[in-house]
Each structure stands twice: as structure tokens, then as C-alpha cells.
Design a protein around this nucleic acid. Sequence first.
DNA 1: GGGGTTCCTGACTTTCTGTT
DNA 2: AACAGAAAGTCAGGAACCCC
Length: 271
Amino acid sequence: MAAGFSLCWDYVQPSGMATFWRLEENKVFEVALAKHYLDEDRYERIASYLPNKSLGDVQKRFRELEDDLRRIDEGCSEGASEQSSAEPSPTRSDENMSQQPSKKAKTDVPANGDRRKGVPWTEEEHRLFLLGLSKFGKGDWRSIARNFVVSRTPTQVASHAQKYFIRLNSLNKKDKRRASIHDITSPTLPAHAPNANPTTGSPPAAPASPPQPAAPPCSGPAPVHSSLPTQAQQAAAMGVFTSLALGMGMSMQQNMTPTLAMPTAPFMVSC
DNA sequence: GGGGTTCCTGACTTTCTGTT
DNA sequence: AACAGAAAGTCAGGAACCCC
């Protein structure tokens, strides 16, 4: 199971040369990618967070990610689709449900009538959602869920998008509103993000673990909730890279079993 | 300042509709 | 028929507000 997972995974390039991306580096890469995805000098910016990686490493990794997404677009990404269908993640309760014979297969509402407690979207998940939105466009929630917000089901992504656009449309209608994660309309991180240091270029100490004012509900023992927030958050933190790795035919179990000891906490909206 | 109430937000479910 | 997305609704939690 989860215990004993390696702290990093090794990505062996097709050429045979092994480029070692430690888990922390992967996190840095992902966070930096989310922040600088739209920047023209994104490679330099991302590389500035990764002192042990060359510009070429970052460029190569990014191209591989794009290639993967392109293959997905063309419908020939075996790895990703296989992973999501043949090996249902425990975080994909809703998707699993939707694959049951009948649409009427109701949710796992406990017999005692308690509703499942929703797992709040992290800022990172939302940014990945925005990235996916820019990549696949509105409506392709399945692709966004599979390739960007891997910790969420298409249904969850669609629901999130629904509320997001409602929020977007109502922005001009009311001036005094509570801060919301849906106020974030760009996948890039704010300049004052506590985990970013664009001026010094020094990598953040814990890019995926920014300060968080309140402990998330998942910080304690894992609830019965089928989304298993800890894994979900980890999956969110791994989103882009996981997509890349799976698209390249890597086996999650063989080559990149991720640690479940990710000490991260979800982003919080800094308003 | 403290407590209670109201309102808003977000996660999720259900149902309907369109597509394959 | 099965699947996927859209729309509408439910519910819980929390922030904002009001009154004392």
C-alpha cells in the first residue's frame, strides 16, 4: 500500500540517459509551471526554481508534457486513458460510480442519511483547472480531469466549472463579495505568493506546502470519504507531471509510485 | 467583545437533455 | 442503450452582520 513508498521516482529518458527528478523537484516544476505557464520565458523562470536542473532539462520536460497532451488530443494516449479506466483511483469515486451499469446507481450516501463531506478545492487544483480550461476549453471536463486536475472526477470538474462561471458572471453585479477561490481567473500565481520568490530566483523551500491558516479537514485521520483527501491533494500536486509520466507509458506502480507522505497542504486563497 | 442570526459559498447530488 | 454534459437543487460550513 502506501507505506514505504520511495521518496522520489526516476524518470528514464527514451535515450537511455536517466534524469533524476526528485519528488521535491517535480513539485517545484509543477508549481512553477502553473505559475509561469503563460509566460514567454517560462523555461528560464521554471529553471530558476530548479538549481539542479538545466534550462534544457526544463525545456525537454515541458516539451514532453506538451507532446503528451498532443497525443491525448489525438486520442492515442494509451497510458493516461488506461490508467484512469483500468485502474480506478480511490479518489475517483464519482467516476467509478458513473461507470456502473446503471446511471441510477446512486451515490454512496450512507444509510444514516449523512451526506458526504465535500473536499474543498485547493488553489492548486483550481489553477490546474484553469490550465486545463485553457488547454481543452469549456466543456471538455473529462480531459481536464484526466490530464490536469487528476484528483477530481469529470463530474466534480464540471460542477466546479459551473460554479466558477456563475461566479464569473456575477462579478460585476455585486461589489461586496466574500473572497472566493473562483476569483482566481488566471492559472498564474500572484506575485506575492508566499511560496514564490521571483526576484531572487531561489527555489521555494516547500513549493507545494505554502502556509495555510487553517488545517484542512484531511489533515487528521483519513475520513471515510471516498475521495481520500490526502491522496487527492497529492494527486493534485502531481497533476501535470503525472499526466506527463503516464502519457509516456510509465507505470505508476513500477516506476513512479508516489509517496503518500506528502507533507503538503492545499493552497489557500490569499485575498 | 460576545453571541446569535443571516447570507453566501462551495461540494455534491439529481435530473434532464443531447450525442454516440 | 450508454455515456457525457448542463442545469437546478440540497446541504454544510463559514463569513458578515446585527444586537445586546
